[in-house]
């Protein structure tokens, strides 16, 4: 721009447009950073397509040697006596160990926790429950991982909350820490009680 004459009025927006764009982008990034911090935004998170839908059809065998009944989708159809959790886990999964005390706590409080043992060996899975306790009412064994694919599971642990009608209301990918339990899960359990 020649500096002798001030820019014409009609072109002034060209000066402010980049500024506005930068401000908008800045606000967007700020919101993303905030979301990353409080956990509401996860760029690597895969949103579940099952939210608001019943559990997909499946029927899994029991895990031998632990004395728990098997699990099938029929067990998760409403009306249920209360909200229920379906937890995908494996003995080889380290975050599952972190999560286990929270599941034990919920189970002691009377929340129905159902388990799906993912791609595991029978003796190891049994030993895991012996060592860390058993929070599950029923436990299905998904050795080929096909049921997990039907649920849209992409890693263990993963946990789903079903309301009394058997509709999936919440999915948590990763371990349920004490923090997750208090801040995310408890309010939902109250809401769907």
């Amino acid at each position: 721009m020649s500096d002798s004459a001030p820019p014409k009025r009609s072109r002034r927006w060209m000066l402010y447009a980049p500024l506005g764009l930068a401000a908008a982008a800045g606000a967007g990034f700020y919101a993303m950073l905030q979301g990353l911090q409080d956990g509401s935004y996860n760029p690597r998170g895969v949103p579940s397509v099952l939210l608001g839908k019943p559990a997909p059809d499946f029927s899994l065998p029991a895990l031998e040697g632990v004395g728990l009944p098997a699990l099938a989708s029929a067990d998760l159809r409403g009306p249920l006596p209360g909200p229920a959790l379906v937890n995908f886990w494996a003995s080889w999964c380290a975050p599952c160990i972190i999560e286990h005390p929270q599941l034990m706590r919920l189970s002691r409080e009377g929340v129905a926790v159902y388990g799906i043992n993912y791609k595991d060996r029978i003796p190891e899975a049994g030993a895991f429950l012996q060592r860390h306790g058993n929070p599950y009412r029923r436990l299905g064994r998904d050795e080929p991982g096909r049921t997990a694919i039907d649920w849209g599971v992409y890693g263990v642990p993963e946990t789903y909350l079903l309301d009394r009608q058997g509709m999936i209301r919440w999915r948590w990918a990763g371990p349920i820490t004490a923090d997750t339990l208090e801040n995310e899960l408890r309010p939902l359990l109250r809401r769907y009680a």
């Binding site: 397509v49 649920w151 849209g152 992409y154």
Partner: peptide
């Protein structure tokens, strides 16, 4: 797609 959504 029905199982994993748009992300897949």
């Amino acid at each position: 797609h029905e199982r994993y959504g748009d992300f897949v």
